[in-house]
Design a protein around this nucleic acid. Structure first.
Ligand code: FES
Ligand code: FES
Lengths: 130, 130
DNA sequence: GACAAAAGATACTAATATGGTATCATTAAA
DNA sequence: TTTAATGATACCATATTAGTATCTTTTGTC
């Protein structure tokens, strides 16, 4: 059971690194610093850039920097980008929506757990991590 | 992000069904009742049987029944059987153990969340679900 | 203007986990 | 002896995640 995948993990490392260095940093530099495969890192950075988490500068001397303060970059946001909607999947009844939804105890329990996970996740941002 | 997989879900349904009917129930009966594919259900039941959660009776008139009271069959146990160790995977640093473990904030946060999830999961058993 | 060093776009492959099927052997009641 | 059940095991299918490769575009520097 993975709360966080590699994509997210690497993205967080990159963001933390960028948060510490308040300047434009190239992908190769991040690769050296974090030991993540180059093309993989590139893909992640591109995605973060598309999502306006990073600001990118093309051409020689280019690179990436944070597009907003570290305190405003939330873990949940990054998770959603790389892992889709963060939710704890209750019912697997074949095909469509469960007719038992209302009465299902497991569902309720899972939802309660979900809420407490959310609550804790929402408090984590890049500033907290560095 | 899946807290619970189909395996586990189906296993829980089967266990709940068995808990309600205090008698030996065959796999085909469970299949009818729950609408899970037959061979898949069989596999799940066999596993539960190996793990001493169920007691099985071979031969004609055979089937399965709970091997202990519903209150003593914990969700965590079932999850571990079908999903392996239940843990929230912190660090993905290439290969071996992370040298940064001690200082890693993310790791600590994830662990805290994990603990609260455990705490809640530990209180769920089959008796609670029915 | 040519070159080099960067990011952008996109398509592909590989590994892993999950979900599901098929087959044959064994047991035991009728 | 037949039949209806489980046991054991091997296999296939699908989805998700992880990772690679390649080509285009931009821009500072000589
Ligand atoms: S049985 Fe469908 S939500 Fe629980
Ligand atoms: S960096 Fe390795 S545990 Fe966080």
């Amino acid at each position: 059971m993975k709360l966080i995948t590699r994509n997210t993990d690497y993205a967080l490392r990159a963001l933390c690194h960028l948060a510490k260095q308040d300047k434009v940093v190239t992908a190769p530099e991040l690769v050296r610093a974090l030991g993540v495969p180059h093309p993989f890192m590139r893909k992640i950075l591109q995605r973060l850039s598309q999502e306006k988490i990073l600001k990118s500068y093309k051409g020689q001397g280019g690179g990436f920097k944070l597009n907003k303060p570290a305190e405003e970059i939330y873990l949940m946001r990054i998770m959603r980008i790389f892992q889709g909607n963060v939710g704890l999947n209750g019912c697997f009844l074949k095909k469509d929506i469960c007719p038992n939804k209302g009465r299902c105890v497991l569902r309720k329990k899972i939802h309660a757990i979900e809420d407490s996970v959310y609550k804790q996740l929402r408090e984590i941002n890049i500033a907290v991590l560095i």
